[in-house]
């Protein structure tokens, strides 16, 4: 009996040892795979013919719009066999933009695509890049008077004209409109205003109200501007919001006031939020910009420039804009 007990104990022991070895095997396999992964990572591997490096600098705050640009640009980069570095600035300030461009220049990138800020320093740094042989293309917001190769994006003056015409139709060529947004420092917004004013000038019965706007000393937020306009002109007919991301703030500011008079709201951008507000009939009209086209076209032109296929580039390459009205049924297309 003693013998059988011994055999039993030995069998159980052997079985448990075999199980342990099996467990070691189970650990061994993933460990080896992991180690192989590390090996693959640490082994110097690179393309024999290095791709051209293009740096895309975009503001982090225009997330929704920029995400479309980014996605399209990356897809184009893949298709065009170039490498795309994407840099996001925290805010849409000249200082940050300059720094990113400086970094891109010192890293000896082949081309820079940037969402511009119209500023002297930006102009200078673009010129510096161009002098160092790095092509610069601005997108969305142009930096005029710089040595950029081209601008790709909406024609903002034209979009301003369209917006003004649409409002005037709605208001029957009379009434008052308030401008909400940074219309002093942004090239894009000044041009939108320029376009609008060109239209409004023909009808003096339209009154355009400019609240205090952000400058180098102070930032005026959208709710502040909205309140100021409503305090001074309670019977105002419409608001024109330059930055699509601020529409909801304007809407909520109006709603929070005692006077529940209906004000028409027009947006220069058609973000998801704006579209939702349109469905709720809070927003009348929005202008949609073709960010995908901006992303794709900029990459396209940059690679053409780098391959010296299409020289010189046109000074501007405008992308299409859409007018989206309240019903979302009538979608007009306007492009230059």
């Amino acid at each position: 009996m003693n013998k059988w007990l011994m055999i039993l104990v030995l069998t159980v022991f052997s079985a448990s040892m075999l199980f342990s070895f099996y467990r070691i095997y189970l650990i061994y396999k993933p460990t080896m795979t992991t180690l192989q992964e590390i090996e693959a990572y640490t082994n110097p591997v690179f393309d024999d013919v290095p791709k051209k490096r293009i740096t895309l600098i975009i503001p982090g705050i225009r997330q929704e719009q920029m995400a479309l640009v980014e996605k399209e640009a990356l897809a184009s980069a893949e298709a065009l066999h170039v490498h795309l570095d994407i840099k996001r600035t925290l805010n849409e300030t000249a200082q940050e933009l300059v720094k990113e461009v400086e970094v891109a220049i010192s890293s000896k990138t082949d081309g820079i695509i940037l969402y511009g800020v119209d500023d002297l320093n930006v102009r200078q740094v673009i010129n510096k890049a161009t002098k160092k042989g790095i092509a610069v293309i601005t997108i969305g917001n142009d930096v005029p008077n710089s040595l950029r190769k081209t601008y790709i994006g909406s024609n903002h003056q034209f979009s301003g004209k369209i917006m003004a015409n649409t409002i005037m139709e709605k208001l029957d060529h009379k009434g008052s409109v308030g401008i909400i947004g940074d219309y002093q420092t942004s090239f894009m917004n000044t041009h939108r205003l320029l376009g609008m004013n060109q239209s409004f000038q023909e009808y003096p019965s339209i009154e355009v109200i400019y609240p205090l706007a952000s400058n180098q000393d102070r930032i005026w937020t959208a709710p502040e501007q909205t309140n100021e306009v409503l305090n001074q002109y309670p019977a105002i007919d419409a608001f024109i919001v330059l930055n699509g991301n601020e529409v909801s703030k304007v809407v909520s500011t109006i709603k929070s006031r005692v006077n529940k008079q209906k004000h028409l709201i027009y947006s220069f951008d058609a973000t998801e939020e704006v579209r939702e507000l349109m469905e709720e009939s809070e927003v009348e009209i929005a202008i949609a910009h073709d960010y995908q086209q901006i992303g794709a076209k900029s990459m396209d032109l940059m690679t053409q420039w780098l391959a010296a296929e299409e020289l010189p580039l046109p000074m501007e390459k405008y992308t299409s804009i859409h007018i989206i009205d309240e019903l979302d049924a009538k979608e007009g297309v306007a492009s230059e």
Partner: peptide
């Protein structure tokens, strides 16, 4: 720093080396 290159970061390393070169 060339040895640091791999498929994933090769262009970042290129940038990096470019910056050092610039310096």
């Amino acid at each position: 720093s060339l040895q640091l290159k791999n498929e994933h970061n090769q262009y970042l390393i290129d940038n990096y080396r470019g910056i050092i070169d610039s310096q």
